[in-house]
């Protein structure tokens, strides 16, 4: 380091040698955390829209909330998404110990459970469509479908990401960039569970109160 002198003989550092250690993994996870906060605000906007359009007026003589939500059936979805997130959590424990095979296995389990979730959601939507309850019927149904489908879209994107990570872990190994991605994906996947908690309670359960 280059020193300078101020006053009588007080030494101060002016230039710092050696690369300043920026922790790239932490910087990346912080950046992705910030992205997830902004994604959370997307859901805040959607929940606000749902809160406004969740009114008998907005059902426009179409089906109301209580007629279309099935909390008990949706609990299977809750189970699927929470278990999928748990499976991925186990994967991160495997990362810690460097068990590559187990990481891939857990990621595949998470993919499978995520697909179960999406399958249940798809059959739920298909059922509503069969009964003529489509997003085009009323403002309320628009808000309902778009809110749930946005979460579903996130889940689908997460499954794609999980697939990419399964390939990366088996092909590239647990290198620093792969580990940073695995950590980010963990946040992304956990976030889907958190949003589902809100959806389940404030759409499905509130709907039948």
């Amino acid at each position: 380091m280059t020193l300078g002198t101020i006053g009588a003989d007080e030494k101060v550092v002016l230039w710092q040698y050696g690369e300043v250690a920026h922790d790239m993994i932490s910087t990346k996870t912080l950046g992705f955390w910030l992205y997830m906060l902004s994604d959370a605000l997307v859901f805040a906007g959607l929940f606000a829209a749902y809160g406004v359009l969740d009114h008998s007026m907005n059902a426009a003589n179409g089906p109301t909330e209580a007629q279309i939500v099935h909390p008990i059936a949706a609990f299977w979805q809750t189970l699927a998404v929470l278990t999928s997130v748990f499976a991925y959590s186990v994967a991160t424990v495997a990362v810690k110990h460097g068990y590559r095979q187990l990481v891939v296995l857990c990621v595949l389990a998470a993919i499978l459970l995520g697909m179960v979730f999406l399958g249940l959601e798809f059959s739920d939507f298909a059922d509503l469509y069969a009964h003529g309850a489509t997003p085009q019927v009323s403002g309320f149904l628009s808000a309902y479908f778009i809110l749930i489908a946005t979460h579903g879209l996130h889940m689908a994107f997460g499954i794609l990401w999980l697939l990419v990570m399964a390939i990366q872990v088996s092909r590239l190994g647990l290198t620093a960039p792969v580990v940073a991605q695995l950590l980010n994906l963990r946040l992304f996947w956990q976030f889907q569970a958190a949003i589902w908690v809100c959806v389940y309670v404030f759409v499905y359960l509130k709907g039948v109160i």
Partner: peptide
């Protein structure tokens, strides 16, 4: 070693 990163090490079953 990225596996020694604190954010990896904080994982706990």
């Amino acid at each position: 070693d990225p596996l020694h990163h604190p954010e990896v090490q904080e994982a706990g079953i």
